Amino acid sequence: MPTTPSVAVVVALVVLTLLAVGVAAAGHLGTARQTATAAVRAVVQLCVVALVITAVLGSLAWSLLFTAAMLGIAVHTTARRVGAPRAWPWAAVAMASGIVPVLLVIFGTGAVPLDGPSLVPFAGIVTGGTMTAHSLMGRRVFAALRDERGAYEAALALGLLPRDAVDVVAADVVPEALVPGMDQTRTVGLVTLPGAFVGVILGGGTPAQAAAAQVLVLVGLLAAQSLTVTVAFQLVRRGRLVPDDLRSLVGRSSGA
Rank of each mutant, 00 (worst) to 15 (best):
V56Q: 05
I73L: 15
P101G: 02
D172N: 05
F142M: 07
T78G: 00
G189N: 00
I73F: 15
G124S: 11
G195W: 00
S63Y: 11
G108R: 11
G181V: 04
L161Q: 15
T54N: 14
R149M: 00
G116N: 08
T78M: 10
D172M: 04
A123N: 12
V188R: 00
V174I: 10
A177H: 05
L103N: 06
A74L: 02
V93C: 01
V174M: 09
M95N: 10
G181L: 05
L104W: 13
A144Q: 07
L103M: 08
G128C: 03
T187H: 08
A165F: 03
T130W: 12
L145N: 10
L114C: 07
D167P: 02
H76E: 14
G129K: 12
L161D: 15
V105S: 02
I106A: 11
L60A: 07
P175L: 07
A196Q: 12
W88K: 05
V179G: 00
L136H: 11
P175M: 03
T78N: 00
R86E: 14
L114A: 06
G195Q: 01
V141K: 06
W88M: 10
A94Q: 09
V93S: 03
L57W: 13
A177I: 04
V166E: 10
A61N: 01
D164P: 06
D147A: 15
G128M: 09
D115N: 15
P85K: 06
R139K: 12
A155G: 03
L60I: 03
L119Y: 02
S118G: 07
A69Q: 00
D167H: 02
I73G: 11
G58Q: 11
A50Y: 00
V169A: 12
E153A: 13
E148F: 01
R163M: 09
M137K: 01
D172R: 15
S59E: 06
V191D: 02
G58S: 12
L57S: 14
P121L: 03
L57E: 13
L136Y: 12
W88R: 12
L65Q: 00
L104M: 13
A50S: 06
A143N: 12
L161N: 14
F107T: 04
S118E: 12
A196F: 04
Y152K: 01
G72R: 12
G72F: 05
R149W: 02
V126M: 13
V56Y: 10
V82C: 03
V126W: 13
P89A: 04
T185C: 10
W62N: 04
A84L: 12
A61G: 08
H76A: 15
T77D: 07
G108S: 06
G138H: 01
L190P: 04
R86S: 13
E153I: 12
A96H: 06
T192F: 07
R80M: 01
V112S: 14
G128V: 04
F122Q: 06
A74C: 09
S97M: 10
A69C: 08
A171F: 03
A157G: 14
V52A: 11
E176A: 15
A91F: 06
G108V: 07
A68C: 15
L51V: 14
A84Y: 14
G124Y: 10
T130M: 10
V112G: 12
V112E: 15
G110F: 08
T127P: 05
V166T: 02
L136S: 08
A50N: 00
A74R: 08
G181A: 14
L160K: 07
R186I: 07
A154Y: 09
V126F: 13
V82G: 03
A84P: 14
G159Y: 09
A50L: 03
W62L: 15
